[in-house]
């Protein structure tokens, strides 16, 4: 009455390889979807799928605890905060910004800087991708540890966090605390000057526009 045959079938190396390719294809497709989707909030929701597939990678590496933590913290809590923050952004600003002045008669250097500024996200992602690629495919590629997988992973992680890595762990928690306090400061920030006439008018204009939009829908 054991599951030996089925487990043997599922733990074949070829099965693991196939699962890896399926999961990575899914992760890459969803990642492209996050970048490509026109509706910002929907791309926020697609992010959940990306984090979920990464949790699948952790499961393939038999790191169950990390996979659960990935789902609970990244796929749900953080993405939810991201989605709610995205709902507070104004999608119309994006549409207005594209109408920039034609800069044919600018000097070459200024043109280059302007294009850099416009494509900031692209450059940052290209830079981080190259850094990661160099780091990963360097001299000693993937140091494979010969140790067997620990039976009680939670214990191993807990011990590592409270002994070997206790200082980085504490520093990261202090950093998070500082970020939290900073967020509260920004959120509680009172306006330095009274809003004058022009912004008010702009707000009203945008409101009427919104109403028109809703009506046409």
């Amino acid at each position: 009455m054991s599951y030996d045959n089925l487990t043997a079938l599922l733990s074949l190396p070829v099965m693991e390889t196939w699962m890896f390719y399926v999961l990575s294809a899914l992760a890459i497709c969803l990642g492209v979807g996050v970048l490509h989707d026109r509706v910002v909030i929907r791309s926020g929701f697609i992010l959940i799928g990306v984090f979920g597939t990464i949790a699948g990678f952790f499961l393939l590496l038999s790191a169950q605890f990390l996979a659960m933590a990935q789902i609970m913290i990244y796929a749900v809590a953080i993405t939810l905060v991201v989605v709610i923050a995205l709902m507070l952004t104004n999608p119309r600003l994006e549409a207005e910004r594209t109408a920039e002045p034609d800069d044919d008669n600018m000097p070459a250097m200024a043109k280059f800087f302007a294009s850099c500024k416009r494509n900031m996200t692209l450059w940052i992602s290209a830079f981080s991708f190259i850094t990661l690629y160099v780091a990963i495919s360097g001299e000693n590629r993937w140091p494979v540890a010969g140790l067997p997988v620990a039976k009680d992973q939670v214990k191993v992680i807990g011990e590592a966090l409270t002994t070997t890595y206790s200082i980085p762990f504490e520093f990261s928690s202090v950093l998070l605390l500082a970020a939290l306090m900073g967020a509260i400061m920004i959120a509680k920030n009172e306006p330095l000057h009274d809003p004058d006439e022009e912004p008010k008018k702009a707000i009203e204009d945008s409101k009427t526009q919104e109403n028109n939009l809703a009506l046409t829908r």
């Binding site: 959940i48 659960m68 789902i71 749900v76 809590a77 993405t79 939810l80």
Partner: peptide
């Protein structure tokens, strides 16, 4: 972890 998914 799975009980936190329905919120999304």
């Amino acid at each position: 972890a799975s009980a936190s998914l329905p919120v999304v």
